[in-house]
């Protein structure tokens, strides 16, 4: 029995805050307390809960609201690790593992990928699997912004998936493998910048590095607020989605930076969206493992944007952009993409 579970006093805050419980329902997903605290008391439920366990999007909201500061998400990931060690992958996760084995990416590589940019620049840009293969516009916009801001950078010739999806699958072995490879491939740098908040968080918590998310770099180092903007030809109402791994693990300050940068752009009006900080469903391996759950959360996000009368959702995270776009209804773009298009 997990000893931390003793501190739970059934205040229900985590269950009320959990996006999957709220959108999918307790019927379908036992929730953070159900999985992390209560399940250890009934080992016979492990098989039945197994399915349930992979619906968690690892958004960390539960741990954030817990008054006793229980490491609920961490415990859910630990349970996934122990299941993985016994049974190997959940069906939908097998593809992720195959892609890692063959391509060192968590998804199928695109036919054409952006070229690596070797140089002796001290700033290392790590695009991540999605920005390289699924949404190359993110890679291009980031490169463009760094160039506009006169920040020389390089992209490693070889790199592996950061490993964050492997943590969500529960595969400690492959996680260790990609981490060791990456630390070799990175081969000396002064500063590391990433497009994906998942990568950012993972580099900090698992690799022990000190990366910056693109927005932090742009705001604090590159001075993006001083870059000249293009005049605007039409007004656009933008809802800023707050990615879980940005707001909750990297820090609230990044969201504040993003909001400030957006508001300075001509023609851009930031509208307040309800539940802006609620998970979009893109994380936790749920897109691969339980795509219907990921879609339900994405739809809820789009509904919030519609109610705020937003023309556009801007999300500073490739996974968020990808998942919210699956729901359709309101156009969703990455932050760097949006910003780059509006700067000279």
């Amino acid at each position: 029995m997990a000893p931390f579970a003793n501190r739970c006093i059934k205040c229900d805050s985590c269950q009320k805050a959990c996006p999957v419980v709220t959108i999918e329902g307790l019927r379908s997903f036992s929730g953070p307390r159900g999985l992390a605290v209560d399940s250890s008391r009934f080992p016979e439920d492990a098989e039945a809960l197994r399915d349930n366990l992979y619906k968690c999007t690892a958004c960390f909201r539960c741990g954030d609201v817990c008054p006793a500061r229980l490491p609920l998400t961490g415990q859910i990931m630990a349970l996934r690790r122990s299941i993985f060690a016994k049974d190997k992958a959940l069906g939908g996760h097998a593809r992720i593992l195959a892609n890692i084995d063959q391509h060192r990416r968590s998804i199928e590589p695109a036919a054409r990928r952006p070229e690596a940019k070797p140089s002796d620049a001290k700033l290392l840009y790590f695009p991540g699997c999605i920005a390289e293969n699924r949404l190359p516009i993110i890679y291009q916009s980031t490169a463009s912004l760094l160039t506009k801001g006169k920040a020389a950078f390089r992209v490693p010739e070889r790199w592996s998936c950061c490993g964050a999806p492997l943590e969500k699958v529960g595969d400690s072995e492959r996680l260790r493998l990609v981490r060791e490879e990456n630390l070799r491939f990175f081969d000396g740098f002064e500063r590391l910048v990433t497009s994906c908040p998942g990568c950012t968080t993972h580099f900090i918590q698992d690799y022990g590095l000190e990366p910056l998310h693109t927005i932090e770099l742009l705001y604090e180092v590159v001075g993006v607020r001083k870059l000249p903007a293009l005049p605007s030809h039409r007004k656009v109402k933008v809802a800023l989605h707050q990615p879980c791994h940005l707001a909750r693990t990297v820090g609230q300050h990044v969201i504040d930076y993003a909001a400030e940068i957006l508001q300075r752009l001509p023609g851009v009006r930031l509208v307040e969206m309800e539940d802006a900080d609620r998970c979009c469903g893109g994380g936790g391996g749920v897109v691969a493992g339980h795509p219907d759950v990921a879609l339900a959360l994405a739809k809820a996000k789009v509904e919030s944007a519609k109610r705020a009368k937003a023309d556009l959702i801007v999300a500073p995270c490739p996974f968020c952009v990808m998942n919210i776009s699956r729901a359709g209804g309101v156009e969703t773009v990455d932050f760097t993409n949006f910003l780059d298009a509006r700067l000279k």
């Binding site: 709220t22 959108i23 329902g25 307790l26 019927r27 809820a300």
Partner: peptide, 17 residues
């Protein structure tokens, strides 16, 4: 509404729809 018991926030989210 959902079945099998809902949290208050789930009830609010479903009702909103």
């Amino acid at each position: 509404m959902g079945h099998g018991g809902m949290t208050a926030t789930e009830a609010a989210a479903r009702f909103k729809n």
